[in-house]
Amino acid sequence: MTPDYLPFHPDPKKPAFKVPAGAVDAHCHVFGPEADFPFAPERKYTPVDAPKEQLFALRDHLGFSRNVIVQATCHGSDNSALVDALDASGGAARGVAVVRPDTSDEELADLDRAGVRGVRFNFVKRLVDATPKETYREIAERVVRLGWHIVVYFEAPDLEDLKPFLLSLPGIIVVDHMGRPDVAAGPQSAEFRNFRNLMADNERIWVKVSCPERLTVAGPPYDDVVPFARTLVEAFPERVLWGTDWPHPNMKSHMPDDGALVDVIPRIAPTPELQQALLVDNPMRLYWPDVRGGGS
């Protein structure tokens, strides 16, 4: 089946920035291979195959030790490819799943044993059909009993309407891709200030300072996105995560070099202390709380 977007970079550079020991790529995906793990009939896009072997090879090439693999909409609520990758990782990967209201407690327990530690709620209208918020709330109340957190994906204009619902959810809430701010409006915009205030007022809310390639107007090297991410890293150093977003689904303008994305990290986390928190301490605390001292 013909994919709808560009294939991932075939030969990413070796990053100039050396990540700290035990670093975690806290947002990436596996797609298929379709022959083994068919894509969901209701999907809004068809990806290229991006199997676990290539993800783990990229992890090693970039110098990371661990991955957090996030279930993407093209696989719907069939988490088979995700679980397969977790099983193959030898404990070096954790997962964020998509679950249905009728997912049984036994199925949730199986996902937990496989290494799933969160559930994702997607509010980006071009990617998913609408789901009643009460359904999401019921799912959230079930998964937090397992110690999972909630990952939410939305776009900045929708935050004001979503805010009461988000604050009604239990447990830790992780916001994907900085809440997709309008980069053209600048980091002093009312929308981005609204998001910063949300984080400042609610210590349960974390954020992924990821996807400059998806948010940029100017293009590489993403100078227009750096101030947004750096603002969040410096303001909330204990609640920030970073990830490649490999294999970058739905990218149609340009496909980023993952090595170049790693080289953005010291621009958004300019000190060794901030880099350690962003890449090791925070993701380890959230996804591997039983592992002492981070590291690989």
Rank of each mutant, 00 (worst) to 15 (best):
F154D: 12
T103P: 08
V144W: 04
F165M: 07
V128I: 03
F123Q: 09
R117K: 15
S210M: 06
R117A: 11
V151N: 09
V128C: 10
E107D: 11
E138K: 14
V207G: 02
G186N: 11
R193Y: 03
W206K: 09
A185P: 14
E141M: 12
A130R: 05
G171P: 04
R94S: 13
D182E: 09
A130W: 00
I173K: 02
G91H: 04
P101N: 04
Y136F: 15
T131M: 14
Y136Q: 02
S104A: 03
L108F: 01
H177C: 13
V98N: 08
G118S: 10
R180M: 13
A156N: 02
V151K: 05
L108C: 00
S104D: 05
L108A: 00
F165V: 02
F165Y: 11
T135H: 13
A218K: 10
A114L: 05
A109I: 09
G118H: 10
W206Y: 13
I139K: 14
D110R: 14
D201Y: 01
E106M: 09
R142H: 05
D102E: 15
G179W: 11
A156Y: 00
A93Q: 03
F165A: 07
E160D: 15
V98H: 09
V99C: 07
N194I: 00
T103W: 09
E160I: 15
A114G: 00
A156Q: 04
P101Y: 04
D112N: 11
L215S: 09
A93F: 08
R100G: 07
P101G: 01
E203I: 12
E141W: 08
E213W: 08
L166K: 08
N197V: 01
L162Y: 03
P164G: 14
E141H: 11
S168K: 05
N202M: 10
Q188W: 12
A190F: 05
W148I: 04
D161R: 10
V209M: 06
S89E: 06
L198A: 05
F192V: 01
V119M: 05
N194C: 09
V119L: 10
F192W: 04
A88K: 06
S168R: 06
A185G: 13
F121H: 09
L111K: 05
R214C: 01
F165H: 01
L169E: 03
A97M: 08
E213Q: 14
G118D: 06
I205Q: 02
R193I: 01
W148F: 05
T103C: 06
E106W: 04
R193A: 11
V98C: 14
L162Q: 12
F123P: 03
D129T: 15
A218D: 13
I173M: 05
I172E: 07
